[in-house]
Write a protein that binds this DNA or RNA. Sequence first.
DNA 1: AGATCTTTGCGTCATTATGACACAATAAGA
DNA 2: TCTTATTGTGTCATAATGACGCAAAGATCT
Lengths: 248, 248
Amino acid sequence: MHDFALEGYHPGLSLDCVIFGFHENELKVLLLKMKNWDKWALPGGFVPKNMGVDEAAAEALFERTGLKDIFLRQFYLFGNPERNNADHVEKLVKRGVIQENLKSWFSQRFVSMGYYSLVEFSKVTPVPDTISEFCEWKPLSDLPPMIIDHEEILQRAYQTLKKELDDEPVWLNLLPEKFTMTELQTLYETILGKQLDRRNFRRKILSWEILVETGERRTGGRHKAPILYQFDLEKYDRALREGLKQGW
Amino acid sequence: MHDFALEGYHPGLSLDCVIFGFHENELKVLLLKMKNWDKWALPGGFVPKNMGVDEAAAEALFERTGLKDIFLRQFYLFGNPERNNADHVEKLVKRGVIQENLKSWFSQRFVSMGYYSLVEFSKVTPVPDTISEFCEWKPLSDLPPMIIDHEEILQRAYQTLKKELDDEPVWLNLLPEKFTMTELQTLYETILGKQLDRRNFRRKILSWEILVETGERRTGGRHKAPILYQFDLEKYDRALREGLKQGW
DNA sequence: AGATCTTTGCGTCATTATGACACAATAAGA
DNA sequence: TCTTATTGTGTCATAATGACGCAAAGATCT
């Protein structure tokens, strides 16, 4: 294995991606289980010298999920000088997570750019990276112990997601192409952590005029078959630009 | 002069601060005029190795304005690999803006964290830094030519400010302690770039219940003396946490 | 002192958005 | 065909918003 520094990564800069998915009425996050260690980490990486930071984040996302052209957004630069302490690197080496020759690279002070991403759960094929044993979805409601400040990064991403939800219909990235109104409502309820009135929810969503009926219905349940909706991309793009509710 | 790198700055990372002020019914930005060069730059700096990134930004802000505990917020990490080109550094050296021995430091690829700040215009004492000739306010409506991508950074900060304005009463940071409703309205109109109805504006602002009357009025105009308001800090803090309009 | 000018404070009214809730329609299984 | 669960579509009262009118009050001018 080569030395990371020699391979030409931007010094002192790392990336952490909080990848959200929606499955079984739960919001889940894609996490990596460290080798020989009962700690989990956010997918992330470093920035090749010839690559933009956003580009490198998209690349990292692609490697873990197999997906391209995915919703991915900066939310905070974690720049506390104590966030990557020497003790942590020592543990990484001792447990064989990283090789001895990479110790100097990992011992740098890192400033980490936090990204959050919204993906369609069913399309993801989780792939572990070189320092992890496996990669899997974990519900936000039951998170495993995580390395250094990754739990804080995750929580901050979640707060940002909640806030963005008020302004932009970002949730489209979490759903499959066709979905029912109830599925969308459950997603909202899950993210916001509260119950919403079915009839008022429907009225509000439809008032944005970003959904169109597919003409199909979902059959199989022992009840009235619900309409399947999909996005009207043109109108959606306009809503994204202008915001759903423009004050003043 | 010492070598920047040896002085212990975090490598490849810089800061740019877009400092907004409100004066003479205009939104203005604090800019630095480069030495021997008709180009302007945003105040910024580098991050000392023992200092947090946010902390370093606050320090840079303090040095240019003399102000502490000021509204300062990250808005975007500029991470394009081409943003600091070799040609630009060559110019800096040739024009004597930076010394020859600093050339290697400035020739690094920099990733720059963008911050925007809101300050009370009258409290600022602009101070130039080592690479600039002077430091002054420039109206957003008539910006001078700027180095590398600083114009883009500035515009992006302005877009962010406009957006935040819908969710949070961040504008308080731009006004003096006591102000009239009309002054506040003019500020809104300036930032948003559109006229608002005086009576509806008043109703909406007061409905947030973050302002209290001081009991004083501003005299001197050839008309009815307007009430001077100030913030109710407690209520304002709550509004900041919850957002002014919580959807759902 | 009174007229004039300008901006302020505080309303009204019509329209729209929101919250709470009711009821008929329908897919699947008994 | 009957039952059950869930869906589609309403209504109604209340709150928020947009458009606009008018009297009150400082300062200046006559």
